[in-house]
Each structure stands twice: as structure tokens, then as C-alpha cells.
Simulated scan of single mutants.
Amino acid sequence: MVDISDNHRVRDRICTWIGYNIDTVNAELNSCLNACHDCFHPELRRPIQIGAAPLAQEYGIDGFCNILLNPVTILVDVGRTSPPDWLGIVVHEYAHAHIGSPGHDRRFFEVLSHLCLGLGLRPPVWQPDLENYLRNWPHCRSLANPLAFWMGYF
């Protein structure tokens, strides 16, 4: 699921950049995660860890939540969107982690709405087809070259 490139030069550049910068990026993602945690009473918070990783292009996703791990693990491809949109990706994946489900049903809608309101993001609007509507909520603009961030061109 994590993939950078078959090109050795690109792979070396990305690995070097990650080595020097991943702590800073992960600190920002942890800040977003803690903001999500702050929207709930401590006894309602699930153990969740988060990290940045370049996700394989063929999946076409900005983030992933593995609810089967303990702690739940969220991966965010920070190269696919600009930094102001990272919180939106974390909010989406956090909602999955919070309910322990990969779907986009009424429970997901309620948790996502709660998080959006608590963090000053535009909340979703109830739709008859929540599954399709919520797959990309909150909306984040994708960047043209996701690997550019990971190579230090940002």
C-alpha cells in the first residue's frame, strides 16, 4: 500500500527527504489527531496513532484507517493535498477510527459532523446516499504530482 517509485533516483530522493523531514510532518499530523481527540471526552477516545506515508497511486486515496490494529492506525499521504487540507483528511479517517468501521453510514455522518463543527470545518449535509457522498468529505483538492512533496518540491 505504501509505494514511492520504481525509479531509483526518485526513490533515493524521497527516502532522503523522509529521513530529514518525517518527524516534522508527523508532528503536524499528531497535532491534527489531538485536535480530533479534544472533540471527545477522554473516556470516549480510542487509542489511535497516525503517520505520514506516500500511498500507492493506484489506490487514489489521501488517507487510510486500519481499524483492525490496536492502536488504530491512520496513514495520510500528505503529498496528495496541500497542508491546509491535512486536517480534513485526518478528520475523515479519525471518524472511521472512532466508530471502528470502514463505512460511510449514519454513525460515520454523526461523528464526522461532530468533528467538523468542533474544528471549524464545514459539516456535511444529510444526503439520501451517504456512502458515496461522504467518501470524500471534507473535500480536499488533490495535487497534480503527489510525489513532489515527498521529494521536497513544496
Results as ranks from 00 to 15, higher is better:
76 V>P: 01
80 R>N: 08
80 R>T: 05
80 R>Q: 02
81 T>G: 00
84 P>A: 05
85 D>C: 05
86 W>F: 06
86 W>S: 01
86 W>A: 10
87 L>P: 06
87 L>E: 05
87 L>A: 03
89 I>H: 00
93 E>S: 08
93 E>N: 01
95 A>K: 14
96 H>G: 05
97 A>C: 03
98 H>G: 10
99 I>W: 02
100 G>S: 09
101 S>D: 15
101 S>P: 08
102 P>L: 05
103 G>P: 14
103 G>W: 06
104 H>N: 13
106 R>H: 11
110 E>L: 02
111 V>C: 14
111 V>L: 11
112 L>H: 10
113 S>K: 11
113 S>F: 05
114 H>R: 15
115 L>F: 08
116 C>R: 03
116 C>H: 07
117 L>E: 04
118 G>N: 02
120 G>F: 07
121 L>Y: 07
122 R>S: 12
123 P>E: 03
123 P>L: 03
124 P>T: 10
125 V>S: 15
128 P>M: 09
129 D>T: 08
129 D>Q: 13
134 L>R: 00
135 R>Q: 04
136 N>F: 06
137 W>R: 01
137 W>G: 09
139 H>G: 07
139 H>C: 13
140 C>T: 05
140 C>M: 05
141 R>G: 09
142 S>N: 15
143 L>R: 02
143 L>C: 14
144 A>Q: 12
144 A>N: 02
145 N>M: 08
146 P>A: 00
147 L>N: 04
147 L>K: 04
147 L>H: 02
148 A>G: 11
